[in-house]
Design a protein around this nucleic acid. Structure first.
Length: 226
DNA sequence: TAGTGATCATAG
DNA sequence: CTATGATCACTA
């Protein structure tokens, strides 16, 4: 099996992802001649880049799906020994301006989550990075129920943004989707609109999937294989 | 210890 | 700054 090669079909990509399941991050990194950092503190995206590279995605990252020709987005997700998510999953930046015509159907969130190849990876900090195992991949698309959950939250959160009620936004809102800061630090600024419709500067926000949602995806996959 | 708010690296 | 890839870490 050749790593870091182009996949023509969905099946080919899935088989490649299934092939790397069971290997450690260190083993894959060695195959790709990629150095393994001591920890992820200053390399938070390293696991994602490593798996992208192994599966033949362009590790440059452009504003499109990882496998655009297949319509598939790749997401690695850190899990504990029970296969439960350890972190939320970033989806996309929230549009704080020029968002009047956007609907759920035309949103970046809906588009990105249309079809996702989830790759679970052991994520407990007690396990040295190089020794963490890669899990079985899950090729997923939202069920009608999941799509409705996402739409409800997205519309509720976008309403606050469109109305300029940014000061009311915090991470406790949303059942499965939440808004949290997404930037260099708390000093990061981006253009936004206040309640009076005036241009202001605001902390950039991003949409994140809560763990209860991604946990369900992983669990459903386990059941489907029994 | 879970969850929210904060943060890190890099390319363009 | 935006968009890619996310996890860290403080606090209730």
């Amino acid at each position: 099996m050749q790593l870091a090669t182009f996949s023509t079909t969905e099946q080919e990509l899935l088989q490649k992802a299934q092939w790397i399941a069971g290997f450690t991050l260190g083993e894959i990194a060695q195959q790709l001649n990629m150095p393994v950092p001591a920890d992820l503190t200053r390399d938070k995206g390293w696991v994602g880049i490593l798996i992208e590279t192994a599966l033949g995605a362009k590790a440059g990252s452009k504003p499109e799906q990882d496998f655009a020709h297949l319509g598939i987005e790749l997401k690695t997700i850190p899990v504990n020994a029970k296969g439960m998510p350890l972190e939320t999953t970033f989806v996309s930046l929230a549009p704080l301006t020029q968002n009047s015509g956007i609907t759920w159907q035309t949103s970046h969130v809906k588009h990105k989550l249309q079809r996702v190849l989830w790759v679970p990876v052991e994520g407990e900090r007690a396990i040295p990075l190089a020794q963490r195992h890669i899990g079985m991949p899950i090729l997923w698309s939202p069920s009608p129920t999941q799509d409705q959950q996402l739409q409800r939250d997205w519309e509720e959160l976008m309403e606050l943004i469109v109305l300029g009620r940014l000061n009311e936004i915090n991470a406790t809102l949303g059942e499965v989707l939440q808004l949290r800061p997404k930037g260099k630090n708390r000093q990061a600024l981006t253009n936004a609109i206040n309640q009076k419709g005036e241009p202001i500067q605001s902390l950039p926000l991003g949409f994140y999937l809560r763990k209860n949602f991604t946990s369900e995806i992983l669990q459903n996959f386990l059941y489907s294989t029994l």
